[in-house]
Design a protein around this nucleic acid. Structure first.
Length: 490
RNA sequence: GCCCCUAUCGUCUAGCGGUUAGGACACUACUCUUUCAAGGUAAAAACACGGGUUCAACUCCCGUUGGGGGCGCCA
């Protein structure tokens, strides 16, 4: 049985790159009926936080990536790494290193100045027993000594056999002097002890993998299968980062992206089921997923396509499901938790809209459902709900008002108001019939009634079908808004 | 600087020796229409370059160039 894992570090919010790696691992596990493990790599004590661990867990849950084991915290396993390191020291392949950062720095710089690749000159190895005694009180790290001859290699499922000269690999740290393991060491110990069979991760880890293979060998352990997937890139083709825009999963949630959209979209970055299919449900992704359909080149994160795909997923939802998703989205704690990001105007606007919707939807669920049915085909995000459905328009589109909200327009609005309020059954058919009838009586095009009416009701010149709009808003709101507009015209 | 990975429309990709190189996003027309979307139809748009291998290369091999990543007691 295969067993995979996602091993995020709680030093920040879940990055879409990490999320995509999680998705691949999860899909592989679910497709193969294997196990998916969540391991939190919190060994960088200074930069890790419990808050971030929680937000990563929230993100994974939101995306629907459930795990079978974990969350396992590496900091709970410190003794274990220590024990393994001690075992390895006996083999003489690694040993205590008493060098401090200040000791190392000048030596490293000299090597670099001579255009040599840096390699520790291992002074601690040459310590006499007396000298060693002197240093022993000093916090020590455990350093692995890489051979200078030979090669390391491993099979990567995507790239084939990858090889590197041992000469090009520097001596690296296994245990840091604060007692925590280094990434490479903890990773190997955990993956081995947890019985991980496939390591699928970003290709920025390829150079780490060589070191990890060395550790596997030192222990005499069998390495798992490696799959290094390409990176997600920003528009300028560099590694996707904050300066490219939103990189946190939670930001997409807060913007009104559906979890199934994000999973679908991310899965398609570097993977394809083959053929023309693009919009896939979680179930379809699981059944279609396979390692040999993974690509090898980096891909740019295209927000426009994500929005399009979100619209597709929204339209596949029933009105009831959509209402629930919108409620979920509104209930989410506000974007303020992104204290590390400057709150942009857009974020502020979204917050405001969220507040309006929150208050309104809970009080008018049936009405909201009608709004949703009308808006669904044009929604790109869950927050794409024009606020005029919920609050009266406070201003009118300048150009449109100049054209339609004239004295003549006022007379027409008056007529519309009277005739619409006379309707006993306020249905699309009746509304359309009345408006067309008035147009006929006045001998004008229906547009000359429709445009001012839309302006009066929404303040805008664009929007969904006017007759449907009138029906959804209901007689009371329609009459009231027409009156308000007539007063505005003076 | 050293090492590693990589190369199909602007973007995501299909292709797995013989194709009019297909789809999607975006863009542009047209259509539908009360407007804006959506939908429909159409247009435009790519195999980085140079050598091989082969009857035949986008497909295989080698270089060049371009792009990305890594070189921490970060993960």
């Amino acid at each position: 049985m295969i067993k995979v894992r996602i091993a995020p570090s709680p030093t920040g919010y879940l990055h879409v790159g990490t999320a995509r790696t999680a998705i691949f691992n999860w899909l592989l596990a679910r497709n193969q009926k294997g196990k998916f493990v969540l391991r939190i790599e919190d060994t960088d004590i200074k930069r890790s936080s419990q808050e971030m661990t929680q937000s990563i867990i929230d993100s994974l849950k939101w995306m629907g990536l459930n795990w079978d084991e974990g969350p396992i915290l590496q900091c709970d396993r410190l003794e274990n790494y220590k024990k393994n390191a001690e075992e390895l020291i006996k083999t003489k392949l690694c040993d205590f290193c008493y060098c401090t950062e200040e000791d190392l720095k000048p030596r490293k710089q000299t090597a670099l100045a001579e255009k040599k690749s840096w390699k520790c000159d291992r002074p601690c190895l040459k310590l006499s027993p007396d000298e060693r005694q002197k240093w022993i009180a000093r916090p020590s790290a455990v350093r692995f000594f890489t051979e200078s001859d030979g090669k390391v290699s491993f099979m990567d499922k995507l790239h084939g056999e990858l090889t590197k000269d041992l000469h090009d690999i520097e001596d690296f740290i296994l245990m840091k002097s604060d007692g925590t393991p280094s990434y490479n060491f903890a990773c190997v110990v955990d993956d081995h002890e947890m019985g991980i069979t496939h390591i699928l991760r970003g290709e920025d880890h390829i150079s780490n993998t060589f070191k990890q293979i060395i550790i596997y060998k030192a222990f005499g352990w069998e390495p798992p299968v490696f799959i290094h997937v390409p990176m997600i890139l920003g528009a300028d083709r560099s590694k996707l980062s904050k300066r490219h825009g939103a990189v946190s999963v939670l930001e997409y949630r807060d913007k009104g992206i559906l979890p199934e959209t994000l999973v679908n979209f991310l899965a398609l970055l570097g993977w394809s089921p083959g053929g023309d299919r693009e919009v896939l449900s979680m179930e379809e992704l699981i059944s279609e997923f396979s390692l040999d359909k993974l690509g090898v080149t980096g891909s740019i994160f295209d927000y426009q396509k994500l929005e399009w795909m979100n619209g597709e997923h929204i339209n596949r939802l029933s009105d009831d499901e959509l209402l629930k998703k919108i409620k979920d989205c509104i209930d989410v704690p506000n974007t303020q938790h992104f204290s590390e990001y400057p709150v942009s105007e857009i974020d502020n606007e979204l917050s405001k809209k969220r507040e309006i919707l929150k208050k309104f939807i809970s009080e008018n669920e049936e009405y909201t459902k009608k709004v949703i049915a009308l808006l669904k085909p044009r929604m790109k995000t869950l927050l794409d709900m024009e606020s005029y459905f919920f609050v009266e328009p406070t201003e009118y589109d300048e150009k449109g008002a100049g054209k339609y909200l004239t004295q003549e327009g006022k007379q027409r609005l008056e007529l519309l108001k009277t005739r619409l309020s006379e309707l006993t059954e306020f249905s699309v058919e009746n509304i359309e019939a009345v408006i067309r009838k008035i147009a006929e009586e006045l001998g004008i095009g229906a547009g000359l009634l429709i445009h001012p009416l839309r302006l009066a009701l929404t303040g805008k010149t664009v929007g969904p079908s006017l007759f449907h709009l009138v029906e959804v808003l209901g007689k009371e709101r329609v009459v009231q808004r027409i009156e308000k507009t007539m007063a505005w015209i003076k």
